[in-house]
Amino acid sequence: MSTPAPLEFKGRMMGISVLRILHNDLDELSDYLKHQVNKGNGLLRELPVVLDIDVQIIDVDGLLDVLRKQHITVLGAYRTAASMEAAVRRTGLPVILEQKRGQAELAEATPAPPQAAEPPAPQTPVPPASDAPVQMVESRMITAPVRSGQRIYARNSDLIITAQVSAGAEVIADGCIHIYGSLRGRAIAGAQGDESARIFCRDLQAELLAIAGRYKVADDIGDAARGRPVQIYLDGEKLCVDPLN
Rank of each mutant, 00 (worst) to 15 (best):
E170F: 05
A191Y: 04
D52W: 10
E28S: 10
T91I: 10
V146D: 00
D223I: 02
T3K: 05
G15R: 11
I179C: 13
C176A: 15
F9D: 03
V88E: 00
L209D: 02
A144F: 04
H71S: 10
A218K: 11
M13Q: 11
I16G: 01
A117M: 09
S166V: 03
V88K: 00
L7I: 01
L106P: 00
S17I: 02
L26K: 04
K238Q: 13
R202A: 10
G185V: 00
A154Q: 11
V165I: 13
L208I: 05
R45H: 05
R184Y: 03
R184L: 04
A86T: 12
Y32E: 15
A191F: 05
A187H: 03
H23C: 13
D52Y: 09
A107W: 02
S2N: 10
L63T: 01
H23Y: 04
T110G: 04
D235W: 11
A129C: 11
G149M: 12
S83W: 03
G236V: 09
T73M: 09
C176G: 12
I161N: 03
R214T: 06
Q56E: 14
A87E: 12
V50T: 13
V217H: 09
P114M: 03
C176N: 14
L239P: 02
Q135W: 08
L234K: 04
A144H: 08
K238R: 14
M136H: 07
A210M: 09
S83E: 12
V66S: 01
A81W: 01
G193I: 00
T162Y: 08
L33H: 05
V230W: 02
V146T: 08
G149K: 13
A224D: 15
R151N: 13
L22F: 02
H35F: 11
A117Q: 11
E207T: 01
D219N: 10
G11W: 00
M141S: 12
